[in-house]
């Protein structure tokens, strides 16, 4: 399973996906979101939607000094929170800014490709691609 942006041109910037992602923890707000929606240089130009592409050889895991980010078979990483010292190197290593940060805990929040956000996108911007091999899709 892999989260993907199906058609960014349909995004209205409602951020329902961001609130959904954060709500997985059970609480409200945005502290735990690991999907991002921002304008592309002003709202009139449309939006940029940032999702983890679950890289096969993830740069975020490569730079982690404590082994807190574990590459997964088929792509992406899992965070072992107890190992994480909150140095933020992973955040800098991700050039699409898909490593999000929980300021309250000072730790990264990493997409687990669960697809909960997809259910809350009213405009079919997002999709969850089913792929046993977890191959990257554009």
């Amino acid at each position: 399973m892999k989260l993907a942006v199906k058609d960014v041109m349909r995004c209205v910037g409602c951020q329902s996906c961001m609130f959904a992602c954060s709500r997985r923890s059970g609480n409200a707000g945005l502290s735990n979101t690991c999907i991002g929606v921002k304008s592309t240089g002003g709202i009139s130009r449309g939006y940029t939607v940032i999702v983890c592409r679950s890289c096969k050889n993830p740069p975020c895991a490569s730079v982690c000094p404590t082994g807190a980010l574990v590459p997964q078979k088929g792509g992406g990483v899992r965070l072992i929170s107890s190992k994480c010292i909150g140095c933020g190197l992973c955040k800098d290593a991700c050039i699409i800014d898909a490593v999000f940060w929980n300021e309250e805990q000072n730790k990264p929040v990493i997409c687990v490709q669960c697809g909960y956000c997809v259910e809350y996108c009213p405009y079919e911007v997002l999709e969850l691609i089913k792929d046993e091999k977890g191959v990257s899709h554009d």
Partner: peptide, 24 residues
């Protein structure tokens, strides 16, 4: 981008879904 605590996580999600459904 902070967190907002709710009194009952399960009920929160259920009511959220109800309102979201009505809105969409």
């Amino acid at each position: 981008k902070q967190m907002i605590e709710v009194t009952n996580k399960k009920e929160y999600r259920a009511l959220y879904d109800q309102i979201y459904k009505a809105a969409t």
